[in-house]
Amino acid sequence: MDMSPTRVTAADLCLVNAIEDGLPLVPRPFEDIGRRCGMSEAEVIDGLRRLQAEGVVKRLGVIVRHHELGYRANAMVVWDVPDSQVGDLGRRFSAFDFVTLCYRRPRRLPDWPYNLFCMVHGKARDRVLEQVDHLARECGVADIPRAVLFSGRRFKQRGARYSRPEET
């Protein structure tokens, strides 16, 4: 995946912030957003299509809060994978339907030796641990160091904000 930032205009930024906060639940939400961003309804819709096509918007829809729906076992599973294998393994992990996110991140030795992260959401802890074992066996990495970090308290959860403080 290309990680370089996409050039976005001030109008795009307004659009991104508006849709990250969530659409107003009214019959014509894009008209409403357009008023806030100084755009017509059609310009908002075209802008969102373009941001989707460019991959800036990964998805647009109902953003579910898993915890409230009973998905209380949320594990961040981290692996210390040889650097030469991390891309290959990341792609293989991603093929499993219970893996919801998978990223490469840097190690920070000596505190943090892990370079591959994936998220597994489930309703029960035991089941999540079984899935992680299954993943490790199927991908032939049962022997490499890993850790499973279940989430505890949630202190904050909302969409990101990219606008500069003086613009909010």
Binding site: M3, P5, T6, V8, D12, L13, V16, I19, E20, D21, G22, L23, L25, V26, P27, E54, G55, V56, V57, K58, R59, L60, G61, V62, I63, V64, R65, E68, L69, R105, F117, Q157, R158, G159, A160, Y162
Partner: peptide, 30 residues
Amino acid sequence: LSALGDLRDTGAISRVGAVIRPNSVGASTL
């Protein structure tokens, strides 16, 4: 509209909106 409003009020959904690719507009880290 009314069902989505209820789902939002009960916390089952956070919003009807977008997930933005990290680092596509601005920067982020874990």
